[in-house]
């Protein structure tokens, strides 16, 4: 069980003596075996909250308990012991470039001083678990994002943790890869009964995997509850906005006849200007050629997609 009791966290600004309040008076209980989601805008304090759970940050006031142990009072040695039972995965994976997949996964086992033979056995097991047995001797620079995150997960699971913390673990991945990683997390949860705490800014992720969710804003939890309840009856404006964003988010394939002189560079600007993500599914953009036909996949709000489409396509004559 993870228990936060009236936790606040204040950072001292580096230059002047202004204080940044990252968390205000947070109380929260996460049961063993639960999948708990935390959503919120950038700067809401999500990462800070997660980092309290493995003692990377100490609370300014209040207490953080994991399995009845007060994390903030532990000496270095006991903290290291506790950490070995709390796995963590990251948005940018944080793998060691100098080690192969196999060696990366062995890293936490080396920390606890497991003999080499047992280590190898364990690593092979983990490689199978995350489906990377064929890539065992590759280096991280040779892997795709999804594969890197699988290595991250295997590494986090190596010491059979009871808790797995995920800080935007799927935010750097495309929708399909995100689904496959979530599927893997689901299976791990099913097989190991591990407690999952995951931060995300996508309500879709919460919907597909979490039991409960907390919505954060400006260092506070503004809404918390079972996912079905929160999703069917969101009370706080921030929650409502997050849900709206998810509902109106579309994934459309549109075939477009491009305006003359359209170039690659315009595409990047387009994505920024209209806050959509886009990808060319078929056709090519070549500098200098006219009336090129392409099929583009747009992901974003419906209205934004429409505007972006209008901005780059030749006005259709048939509509008069």
């Amino acid at each position: 069980m993870i228990q936060l009791n009236r936790v606040s966290k204040t950072y001292l600004g580096s230059k002047h003596n202004e204080e940044v309040v990252a968390l205000r008076d947070i109380s929260l209980t996460i049961e063993n075996g639960e999948i708990f989601g935390i959503v919120g805008h950038s700067g809401a304090g999500k990462s800070t909250l997660l980092r309290l759970l493995n003692g990377l940050e100490k609370p300014t006031t209040g207490s953080v308990m994991i399995q009845q142990q007060e994390i903030s009072n532990l000496d270095n040695e006991s903290l290291r012991q506790v950490r070995q039972k709390i796995g963590m995965i990251f948005q940018h994976f944080h793998l060691l470039w100098s080690r192969t997949v196999r060696e990366n996964i062995a890293f936490p086992l080396e920390i606890i001083g497991l003999p080499k033979a047992i280590r190898e056995q364990k690593v092979t097991q983990l490689l199978k678990r995350v489906g990377l047995i064929e890539r065992a001797d590759a280096y991280p620079s040779q892997l795709s994002g999804g594969e890197k995150q699988r290595v991250g997960i295997a590494r986090a699971l190596a010491n059979d943790p009871t808790v797995l913390l995920c800080d935007e673990a799927t935010s750097a991945l495309d929708p399909e890869t995100t689904q496959s990683i979530l599927q893997l997390l689901r299976e791990i949860h099913r097989d190991m009964g591990i407690t999952l705490v995951l931060i995300t800014h996508e309500m879709g992720v919460v919907r597909s995997i979490c039991d409960r969710v907390a919505v954060m804003e400006a260092g506070q939890i503004v809404e918390m509850g079972f996912v079905e309840e929160v999703f069917s009856n969101p009370k706080h404006p921030v929650t409502q906005k997050f849900l709206q964003m998810e509902m109106h988010s579309q994934d459309q394939l549109i075939s477009i006849e491009l305006k003359d002189g359209f170039e690659w560079a315009n595409l990047v600007k387009l994505a920024q200007d209209y806050r959509v993500s886009l990808e060319i599914v078929s056709g090519r953009i070549e500098a200098g050629s006219k009336r090129q036909s392409v099929v583009i996949r747009f992901i974003g709000q419906e209205a934004d997609i429409e505007k972006a489409r209008a901005a780059i396509s030749v006005p259709s004559r048939s509509r008069g």
Binding site: L56, F107, P108, I111
Partner: peptide, 8 residues
């Protein structure tokens, strides 16, 4: 940080 989190 990842190494610290693993208890190194």
């Amino acid at each position: 940080e990842a190494a610290q989190v693993m208890g190194a």
